[in-house]
Amino acid sequence: MAEWLAAHTKTLSLWCGALATFAIYSVLYAENRFYRLFEHIFIGLSAGFGVYVTWSQVLAPKWWQPMVHKGQWQWIFAAVLGSMFYFMYSKKHAWVSRVIFGLFMGLSAGLMFRDFYEIYFPQMGASMKPIVGNSISWWDSVNAIVFYAILISSMAYFFFSFEHDSPVVQKTAAAGRWFLMIGFGAIFGATVMGRMTLFIGRLNFLVNDWWPTARVAWQYRFFQTAVVLAVIAVLVQGFRALKARSKTFPPSA
């Protein structure tokens, strides 16, 4: 059994991957039971894997082993602190979990000075762009002017500390809104690219990884029968769905 499993792990993984992919994509046609089932399997596997990895790669080597095998008993205090999270399930003592959340929020908030200094000070420095100079070409000058125009007008658009009464401020802010559109266009274009790549990844799996295995399997009578049965099942299900839909939304409506 173990030998057979080991020999067929890759093939099994490919078939399970294809099944899972089709199950999730079936929601694009309509919400269905098959999709719901695999959605729950996904949550179960994710949670189970999370617990396994957290134990095997974090808690076991960095907490349990130093504590139990090397005698570093002090690590038990980490468990006491960690247990404070679970007080949130008690109505009476839920506030105790706030203490540990407060600790993490405080640590994160305390870094704001460093954040500002290390992230934004260099940004301010880099915003001082020379417009003219010995090593500055005319194209660099144009770019610097474009940069200042966009930076100042976009910041004017976001500046709400005083009312935009003056026509100069109004016009600058309006220009800022226009320039920001270029930025949002860039984000939109990049988003389309990113999301399409994710679908390309799945399609690549089906076309280049799973499909060659399916073609090999096609030579077996058993597999052919299974595919025919699956196609019939999908057609019947589709027909029933259409029928149910036409009852709910009659063509005359």
Partner: peptide
């Protein structure tokens, strides 16, 4: 050995495919 094979099928077969497919739905 058997556990390792089952783990691989569950991880590489199901889990990664389900996760990646879920994310890729946004493309549609």
């Amino acid at each position: 050995k058997a556990s390792e094979s089952i783990f691989t099928v569950l991880f590489s077969g199901f889990l990664t495919s389900l996760d990646a497919t879920m994310f890729s739905l946004i493309a549609f």
